[in-house]
Amino acid sequence: MKRTKIVTGAVILAVAVLFFIMSFSYGYYNRFGPGSGFFPLWINGGLIILATLFIIESIREKPNASAETWPKSKALANIVATIGSLVVFSLLVPLLGFVVPCAIMLSIMLIFHYKWYFAIPAALISSILILIVFQSLLGLRLPVNQFNW
């Protein structure tokens, strides 16, 4: 986990430096008082210092100081499936509307735990129920196709 901490710190540092540099273009002070760049400059300046301290703290940390570990086998597969299913959903929605991508998303998550002949129908029925409850009953906007599903 030590390496992950250092990499995380480095990413935060890189973003903070980028935002810090961008802050200069917004104007530090105007004739009324602090400009649009005043607060971002101080905040991202502080963030640069804190990210650096975090990296130093992580480098100094003993190898086994954290109880956290990366997930293995089944848990890792579930986590990857969760993120993967969300990405698949986002890519398919513009083409297919809501119900089919949602059913595919839920199927990907359920297939690890249940037989396919249970997972796929359950995912499809759940997607239709979500459409009915959230769109028809609660009046929320869903990314439906031209057939309204």
Partner: peptide
């Protein structure tokens, strides 16, 4: 195995509905 897919589905619906 049932609770987590439900949370993900509700999250997707909620996030989309914020601004369509």
């Amino acid at each position: 195995s049932i609770m987590y897919p439900a949370i993900v589905a509700i999250s997707v619906v909620g996030a989309y509905s914020v601004s369509g």
